[in-house]
């Protein structure tokens, strides 16, 4: 049986018609704004799906994130670029509290404070079930896949829905099979990670992250550990996901991918965002000298 019931569009971007009706702008004006890189949702002041406020992270005496602010509206794909050590991976890991940021930092997902109890002052760190529920709304894909080697591809995907009691075993398996179909691995359900290529493993990892129907997907250099010929199959899955309307934050060195898929490119340097805009302008006409130097290096090597 071909299961199709789970493969659907994700959180829709605020559609242009909707914004036009709310702002009284004409569709043509909106389209023009959009082409100039303005964000439609900013125009109508829709709260972003992900809001990062004053994010600070230190490791001992070393500050790796210096009060980063970043808003990402629903349905957007943001590429996070920068040299290694610039803090982009740490930023990603702070979003789902794999790394606990310093007090005063705030991560908001759709109006909900992540990792902290907003009712207490000062906010207490969330633990246990409350944090687990929040994390389940944020899918994460890692550079080294981190699939569970003792479980099959299908079991890797069903694990979270079963742990969260979101589905019966049969439902979870059906959904997992549909997700495997979606990432082009319909015949790999019974394979163990060690029997799959890197590209296949990473696609299973994406399916695993999607199984909880997350609001937001975080990608941490997901193609960096892959052989060059396996990169495309993973990027294709991500492109499809972006087209389906998933909100994504993608830490990447794939400039071509950033140019093609991202709505926005954010350049980080030494724990700060120093450039942020549509891919066309950042990648082709970077203003900041550091961005220029970085892109020049990337073009030479990659």
């Amino acid at each position: 049986m071909k299961a199709t019931l789970w493969v659907t569009r994700y959180d829709a971007r605020p559609c242009r018609e909707d914004i036009a009706s709310r702002t009284g702008m004409t569709m043509i004006e909106l389209a023009a704004l959009s082409e100039h890189g303005a964000h439609e949702s900013a125009v109508v002041n829709v709260a972003p799906l992900l809001r990062i406020k004053k994010l600070v992270k230190r490791y001992g005496p070393k500050t790796v994130l210096h009060g980063v602010d970043l808003d990402i509206p629903a349905g957007r794909v943001v590429a996070l670029i920068g040299a290694s050590g610039s803090g982009k991976s740490t930023l990603l890991r702070c979003v789902n509290y794999l790394e606990v940021p310093e007090p005063g930092s705030e991560i908001w997902l759709d109006g909900e404070l992540i990792g902290q109890d907003a009712r207490s002052t000062p906010p207490r760190l969330l633990q246990g079930a409350a944090l687990r529920r929040q994390r389940s709304q944020i899918g994460m894909v890692f550079q080294h896949f981190n699939l569970f080697p003792n479980l099959t591809a299908l079991e890797n995907i069903t694990e979270a829905p079963l742990a969260h009691r979101r589905a019966t075993k049969a439902e979870a398996r059906m959904q997992a099979q549909a997700l495997l179909d979606q990432v082009g691995l319909h015949d790999k359900a019974a394979s163990y990670p060690s029997q799959l290529s890197g590209g296949q493993q990473q696609r299973v990892a994406i399916a695993r992250a999607l199984a909880m129907k997350p609001r937001l997907m975080l990608f941490d250099e997901v193609t960096s550990a892959l052989d060059p010929e396996l990169v495309d199959e993973v990027l294709k899955v991500m492109l499809q996901l972006a087209q389906d309307g998933m909100t994504m934050v993608v830490v990447t060195h794939e400039m071509a991918f950033a140019a093609e898929v991202a709505d926005r490119v954010v350049y980080m340097d030494q724990g700060r965002i120093i450039e942020d805009g549509p891919p066309g302008s950042i990648l082709r006409n970077p203003r900041h000298p550091r961005t220029q130097a970085f892109l020049k290096r990337m073009l030479r090597t990659g």
Binding site: N96, N150, A160
Partner: peptide, 24 residues
């Protein structure tokens, strides 16, 4: 990375221990 993946999926401590960590 196994712990991180389990945490990112929101698996609880005992679930993670029983299903992921101990078998490995």
């Amino acid at each position: 990375g196994q712990f991180q993946a389990a945490d990112a999926l929101g698996l609880g401590y005992w679930w993670r221990t029983r299903r992921i960590i101990v078998p490995q």
